[in-house]
C-alpha cells in the first residue's frame, strides 16, 4: 500500500515530521470478507484494520485471515507497487490474546 507522507503532524499540527520505518509484522484488529469484486480484485477477498507491532493502525487488504488477533506480515508485489498483509501462523500474535 502507499501511505502518502504528511507534511504536518495530524495530532499537534507541528512541523517538521520525521520519516520512520514500520513493519513488517502486525495483528488483525478487525477484518471482513468482501463478496463484491472491484476493478482490482475478484471476490471474495479480505480487507481490515491491522495494528503494526510499533503501534500505528492501517486499513489494508488481507489474505488468509480467519480470526481477530491473528498475526500477519507484509506481503506484496513490489514490481506492481502492490502490498497487503497475509496471515502468519508461524508467529505469536503481537499484543493479541493468542
Amino acid at each position: 500500500m502507499t501511505i502518502p507522507i504528511r507534511r504536518v503532524c495530524p495530532a499537534c499540527g507541528n512541523q517538521p515530521v520525521a520519516e520512520t520505518t514500520y513493519g513488517p509484522r502486525g495483528t488483525v484488529e478487525s477484518w471482513v470478507d468482501l463478496q463484491v469484486s472491484t476493478d482490482a480484485y475478484q471476490a471474495p477477498y479480505q480487507v481490515g484494520f491491522v495494528t503494526l507491532s510499533e503501534g500505528p493502525r492501517l486499513f489494508t487488504r488481507l489474505e488468509s485471515v480467519r480470526s481477530r488477533d491473528q498475526a500477519v506480515r507484509l506481503a506484496g508485489e513490489p514490481d506492481r507497487d502492490t502490498y497487503w498483509f497475509v496471515a502468519d501462523p508461524t508467529t505469536t500474535p503481537i499484543g493479541g490474546q493468542g
Binding site: 478487525s30 471482513v32 472491484t38 480487507v47 487488504r61 502492490t82 497487503w84
Partner: peptide
C-alpha cells in the same frame, strides 16, 4: 462502482480493492 471508490484518498487506496462498505461491515460485526 469504480467511480464511487474515488470518494477516498485514491493515492492511498489505489489498487487495494478497499470498498467502504467494509468499514460498515466491520463495525456491525463488532
Amino acid at each position: 462502482l469504480s467511480a464511487l471508490q474515488t470518494a477516498a484518498d485514491t493515492e492511498a487506496t489505489a489498487g487495494q480493492g478497499l470498498q467502504f462498505v467494509a468499514l460498515y461491515a466491520m463495525r456491525l460485526e463488532e
